[in-house]
Nucleic acid binder design. Structure first.
Lengths: 211, 211
DNA sequence: TCGCTTTCGCTACGGGTCGTAGCGTAATGG
DNA sequence: CCATTACGCTACGACCCGTAGCGAAAGCGA
């Protein structure tokens, strides 16, 4: 069971403070410089560490920025606002607030672009960012089923496909609105979006319609 | 009135063939190398032109890739399939087919990421890519209104907001499905997506024709 | 307290790309 | 024929990359 000598390793342990400083410096550099002008040497200087220390922990710019941006999504929570519509609006507003921050705007789409040619990066992005968001969809569905707002799923495969569809619709719409159209996903927009999404779901996809 | 000496300019005219060769070489390099490893020197070599010629026409990598990727969306058409649902499915499938091509996957998200810090690039992206897509939404709505599938808009402002919402939902969902979730937006997915979207918009169950 | 191990800061380096300047030549129009 | 512009080519300084090597520092076990 000692196949993880992570803590039982001899020698000087790695500084956890350095990790935090590097990730914070990365976000700071993303705000000031953006993705393309961000250099690892500059990040190391901002963090007060040597460039070699940075390279010992991250293999490159992509991996570093993924981790730096992923921390922004830690604050995502599923609020209990009493109804499915209100819950969706709440979590979407949180998501929009994160995407409104410049460090997320500059970094997130860049690593998504890079992940289209790097399977390892895609996996890292999936586990540390995407899956954490998707879990909120699953939780929200369960809660709505407990409330009786959604029927319990009959087919597991159909249910999984529905979760994927909802997730792509929610995250995709907010990202597109914020980063491509360039308009803020404010309360008015979120209200209209939730209305369309929820009306489309409660009548159609929840319970295996045409079968 | 001769403030546009675009054609009446003395001297040797610019080679239109060089423009096409450069853009084609850019797409080729995007496929082989991806965004981050693409260099302007390599593109110039592939196109058979000098690097300086490339810099005389494009100010940098961002602008070049925007133009190269924008040409991919020229083939987008709004098909007339008889019903609003079928029209949406058709255009979404076209959009998904473009996003499935590696030169679009690598380039599009990268320029979107860069455009978050470059207003001129954002404007270029908007006029040459985004607005062209959004027009399809407007056309599709007009056609559906002629068919009687959608009511004519009462408020112009409300109608514009609805178009923006639909556009962000459609484009965002397809992009997120393809590039973030990493799954193809195939016919089955498009059918489910269209069903949810259309039900959410009209509020009435639109029976899928042909089934 | 003493070694062993690993990390850390620092310097230096070759390699690559960037974006521009300069030059001579090619192509078009008056 | 001449002015004007585009083109190909070379060269250049500047910057960043990613790594190697070194001595010092920080834990851990004996």
């Amino acid at each position: 069971m000692q196949s993880r000598p992570a803590t039982a390793r001899p020698g000087r342990p790695r500084s956890a403070a350095a990790d935090a400083a590097i990730l914070a410096a990365t976000r700071e550099a993303l705000v000031e410089l953006g993705w393309s002008k961000l250099t690892l040497g500059d990040v190391a200087t901002r963090a007060g560490v040597a460039k070699t220390t940075l390279y010992r922990r991250w293999s490159g710019k992509n991996e570093l920025v993924v981790d730096a941006v992923a921390e922004l999504f830690d604050e995502l929570r599923l609020p209990d606002r009493g109804s499915l519509a209100a819950d969706i609006e709440g979590v979407v507003l949180q998501f929009a607030a994160i995407l409104a921050r410049p460090e997320a705007r500059s970094g997130l789409m860049a690593v998504v672009a890079e992940s289209t040619r790097d399977d390892a990066l895609r996996e890292r992005l999936r586990t540390s960012v995407v899956d954490r968001q998707k879990r909120l969809v699953v939780e929200g569905r369960v809660r709505a089923q407990c409330r009786g707002e959604l029927p319990p799923e009959s087919d597991a495969g159909e249910a999984a496909r529905t979760v994927d569809l909802i997730f792509d619709m929610v995250a995709g719409a907010v990202v597109h609105r914020t980063l491509v159209s360039g308009h803020p996903a404010d309360e008015e927009w979120v209200r209209g979006f939730t209305q369309v999404l929820l009306l489309g779901l409660t009548g159609a996809a929840s319970g295996a319609p045409g079968e």
